[in-house]
């Protein structure tokens, strides 16, 4: 354990270029996945919150269940999709960062959609009569509610980011953990563990934790300040 902190400390202080590359790619992949998934999932979650349609309950249960989708399964699905023998094979996306972004999107989308559905539904409960009175249509209400729930939604998006940056199973399968191309923090940790370099693996784990904590911390500080100001 002590060695792990030492290893982490040394890696950070030395700004090892390989590590910097891995960290950069990790952030690029996970942040891209989070932004793209959120751009789809937030309006989707809001739409499910606002509209009553047959089978709505089933959709909600299905989304909630998908939150527990094992990353390996998501990875396998994306692998089969992107494989040369698969339907999207001709784009040659397998073993690229784009494939990793897609796999992480599959993991994040249900989380952001399901949680934002809950958040928006509660806010809609509060706003519904007032907005209807003002003549706001449901379609128009979606951006309004998303904007007004922004502080809660930041937490939702961060939950997605946490899942994306922490998972290894999916990106390992679709990325291939290729050195310098698709190696991210989690797959590097898995590799070092398999090589028995436990201190180094744990050291990388500590750095990953610090990264995620930094992103969360920033979001928290910004969110709290704004929340206090805007009520």
């Amino acid at each position: 354990m002590e060695n792990a902190f030492l290893a982490a400390f040394r890696l950070i202080v030395e700004m090892d270029p390989v590590l910097v590359g891995i960290v950069t790619l990790s952030l690029q992949v996970s942040l891209t996945a989070v932004l793209l998934a959120s751009a789809i999932a937030l309006p989707l979650g809001a739409a499910i919150a606002l509209w009553r349609f047959p089978g709505r309950g089933a959709v909600i249960v299905f989304l909630n269940a998908l939150m527990g989708l094992p990353p390996v399964v998501a990875g396998l699905m994306v692998y089969l999709l992107l494989s040369r023998a698969g339907p999207l094979g001709e784009f040659g996306l397998l073993f690229t960062p784009t494939a990793m972004v897609i796999a992480q999107m599959v993991l994040i989308l249900p989380i952001v959609a399901a949680l934002s559905r809950q958040v928006i539904e509660e806010l809609w409960e509060e706003y519904r009569e007032q907005l209807q009175s003002l003549g706001v249509t449901r379609l128009r209400a979606i951006p309004t509610l998303l904007w007004d729930a922004r502080f809660s939604l930041v937490t939702v998006v961060l939950a997605g980011f946490g899942r994306a940056s922490a998972e290894v199973g999916a990106v390992l399968i679709v990325g291939g953990n290729i050195s310098g191309v698709t190696r991210v923090m989690t797959t590097a940790i898995a590799l070092e563990t398999s090589m028995g370099n436990l201190a180094l693996a744990l050291g990388l784990g500590i750095i990953l934790l610090l990264l995620v904590a930094t992103v969360n911390g920033l979001a928290y500080v910004i969110g709290e300040t704004a929340r206090r100001r805007l009520g």
Binding site: T32, L35, L36, L42, P143, W147
Partner: peptide
């Protein structure tokens, strides 16, 4: 909404 728009513009750039 602004955040959403910003995301939509930023995401492809990041990609």
């Amino acid at each position: 909404m602004k955040a959403l728009l910003r995301n939509m513009i930023l995401a492809p750039a990041l990609l």
